[in-house]
Deep mutational scan, measured.
Amino acid sequence: GVTLFVALYDYEARTEDDLSFHKGEKFQILNSSEGDWWEARSLTTGETGYIPSNYVAPVDS
C-alpha cells in the first residue's frame, strides 16, 4: 500500500516549486530520494510540489 504523510505544521512556500500546506493536510509522497525535500501530492488540493520532510510524519494506518 501507499504510505500517506500528514503535515505537523503549517508551511508557506518559499519558491514556485514548493507546496504551501496547513497542519493536518495529507500527502502522497512521489519522490523521497532528494534528501530533505520530498516531491509530494496534496490529497487536499491535488497539487504537486516539494515539501520539507521534517514537517511531515507517516499517517498511522
Rank of each mutant, 00 (worst) to 15 (best):
G1Y: 03
S32P: 07
E12T: 13
F21V: 04
E25F: 02
K23S: 07
F27V: 07
E12G: 09
V59T: 09
D60I: 05
Q28L: 09
T15C: 02
I29H: 01
D60R: 03
T48L: 07
S42I: 12
N31L: 03
S20F: 02
V2C: 13
S42A: 15
Y11W: 12
T48K: 14
L4S: 11
G1S: 11
E25P: 01
S61C: 09
S32Y: 02
A40K: 01
F5E: 02
T48E: 09
V56A: 03
F27P: 00
Y55I: 06
Q28I: 08
A7F: 00
F27G: 00
S53A: 14
D17G: 07
D36C: 05
Y50C: 10
D36T: 08
I29F: 03
A40N: 00
G46I: 02
S20Y: 02
G49Y: 01
S53P: 13
E12N: 12
G46W: 03
N31A: 07
W37R: 15
D60H: 08
F21Y: 01
E34T: 07
A7Q: 00
L43M: 10
S53R: 15
A57R: 14
Y11L: 03
G1T: 15
N54G: 10
S32W: 09
G49Q: 01
Q28P: 00
I29W: 02
I29L: 10
F5Y: 15
S53V: 07
E12S: 13
V6H: 10
K26D: 03
A57W: 03
K26H: 15
D60A: 05
T48Q: 09
S32G: 08
G35C: 12
G35H: 02
L43C: 13
V56Q: 00
E16W: 04
A57V: 11
S33A: 11
V6F: 05
E16Y: 12
F5I: 06
Q28N: 11
E12W: 04
V59C: 11
L4I: 08
Y11E: 01
E12P: 11
A13W: 02
T44G: 10
V6R: 10
A7C: 01
D17I: 06
F5S: 10
S20T: 05
T15I: 06
F27S: 00
L19T: 03
L30I: 05
A57N: 08
I51G: 00
L8P: 01
L30C: 05
F21E: 01
P52Y: 03
K26Y: 05
S32E: 10
V6E: 12
G46Q: 12
Y11M: 08
S42K: 09
T15W: 06
Y11P: 01
R14I: 10
D18N: 15
W38R: 07
D18P: 01
H22T: 15
L4E: 15
E16S: 07
T48F: 04
R14G: 06
F27H: 00
D17T: 07
K23M: 06
V59D: 06
P58E: 15
G24R: 03
S53T: 11
I29P: 07
N31H: 01
K26Q: 08
L43K: 12
D17Y: 05
E34V: 10
Q28H: 14
T3E: 12
Y11T: 01
G35S: 09
